[in-house]
């Protein structure tokens, strides 16, 4: 038997990486502690508040390295292992440092067949990175994600777990990147229901020409 512990086939994650934050940074302010206390009071046990607290920690620190998870565990009085387990289960908690703006491009089937992969590959070329990578200047991370629940306005993307950008064309993608570089986040955009289009004055896309090229296939890693 090969010694898989010493010579792992797949590289194991570093269990004790060098900390990203020093002791002084690792603390919640009084205001944040009040918020956490409110969440804890809403559940029968403090465990329930762990997801909200992780969201708060991610907003504060940008991502969730082990020392931040330990801080969350101490604040809620639950074991580090449980916090680690939760943080690693959900895809929206970032375990690694990401770019300032994270572009989550939906490529699930509704988007796939209306140009989701076109959009993803266009952004890959524009930013000079593959999906899953961060640009050298640390501005953008590009990710391929599963269905974001906006299939009627496909193709679409989400910026940094926040606003949705609907019906993205190449021109709109260019404008979005420029706006993000200038520090402007997209606003919350409401897409009118199709049944209300005439009565309430809709903002729905009516031109469909730009997403005729839906034939792009997902590109497998080994063919790159």
């Amino acid at each position: 038997m090969a010694d898989f512990i010493r010579n792992p086939v797949v590289t194991l994650p570093d269990r004790n990486p060098a900390p990203h934050f020093c002791e002084q940074e690792l603390a919640f302010t009084e205001e944040e502690k009040t918020k956490i206390a409110r969440w804890v009071s809403q559940y029968p046990t403090p465990d329930g508040a762990v997801m909200w607290t992780l969201w708060l920690a991610q907003e504060k620190f940008g991502f969730l390295p082990p020392e931040v998870l330990r801080l969350v565990g101490e604040e809620l009085g639950i074991p580090y292992a449980q916090v680690y387990g939760v943080a690693t289960f959900y895809t929206q908690y970032y375990k690694q440092k990401k770019g300032v703006c994270v572009l989550d491009v939906c490529t699930c089937f509704s988007c796939q067949f209306t140009g989701g992969y076109d959009l993803l590959h266009y952004l890959e070329e524009k930013l000079g990175i593959h999906a899953g990578e961060t640009t050298a200047d640390g501005c953008f991370t590009l990710q391929e994600v599963e269905c974001l629940g906006a299939c009627g306005s496909a193709p679409m993307l989400q910026v940094s777990n926040g606003p949705f950008v609907h019906c993205v064309t190449r021109a709109r993608a260019d404008a979005l990147i420029d706006a993000l570089k200038a520090g402007r986040m997209p606003e919350f955009a409401s897409v009118t229901l199709p049944q209300d289009e005439d009565e309430l004055g809709g903002n729905r896309r009516t031109d469909v020409a730009f997403c005729e090229r839906y034939a792009t296939l997902p590109i497998a890693k080994h063919t790159r």
Partner: peptide, 14 residues
């Protein structure tokens, strides 16, 4: 009904 894909007017219809 959430209609999506290769249709002219995708969206949610009640």
């Amino acid at each position: 009904y959430g209609i999506s894909g290769h249709v002219n007017c995708p969206g949610v219809y009640e």
